[in-house]
């Protein structure tokens, strides 16, 4: 556990980091970013909590089993979205230009951007983002656990 300054700043910054990461995941098809980058940002928030509060508090804050479930959900959703387009091919973008969810046609050329475009890409982005944030978060938690068990002996 670190000093009170670090803990206070962590309390202020933690939600902002999470929201920024989810923003990067959500806008992956319009601005620089995507599932991996946003997931890494959220995982860095988890690492900040872990460093500021120590393993024992962070373990109660962020449950490792929830992260495992989240990662499995992300992986299954990625493969499931890929299988939904199997009418044409695996990984077919069946929602693009369809007029339904994320189905608005894009203006060709330079445009200000519309969130409701790109077909299945935002869904895949969310799936991969959940998978990456859960995977990296559980890796960080597990390594902190291993270091802590080494200190006790």
């Amino acid at each position: 556990m670190m000093s009170k300054i670090v803990r206070t700043i962590t309390n202020i910054l933690y939600s902002s980091i999470l929201i920024f990461g989810f923003y990067i995941i959500m806008h992956g098809h319009l601005t620089p970013g995507g599932g991996f980058q946003g997931g890494a940002v959220v995982a860095s928030g988890i690492a900040l909590v872990l460093i500021a509060y120590g393993y024992d508090t962070a373990k109660d804050w962020i449950k490792k089993s929830n992260l495992s479930i989240l990662e499995s959900i992300g992986g299954l959703a990625f493969i499931g979205v890929a299988f939904l387009g199997i009418g044409t091919t695996f990984f077919y973008n069946f929602l693009a230009n369809s007029g339904t969810l994320f189905g608005n046609p894009t203006v060709i050329g330079i445009n200000p951007g519309d969130l409701n475009t790109a077909g299945v890409l935002p869904l895949m982005s969310w799936a991969v983002g959940l998978k990456v944030l859960a995977g990296l978060g559980s890796i960080i938690l597990l390594m902190a656990y291993g270091i802590k068990k080494g200190d006790e002996k």
Partner: peptide
């Protein structure tokens, strides 16, 4: 793919 970001597509 109706995506603005070519890298993501």
């Amino acid at each position: 793919t109706s995506t603005n970001n070519v890298v993501t597509s």
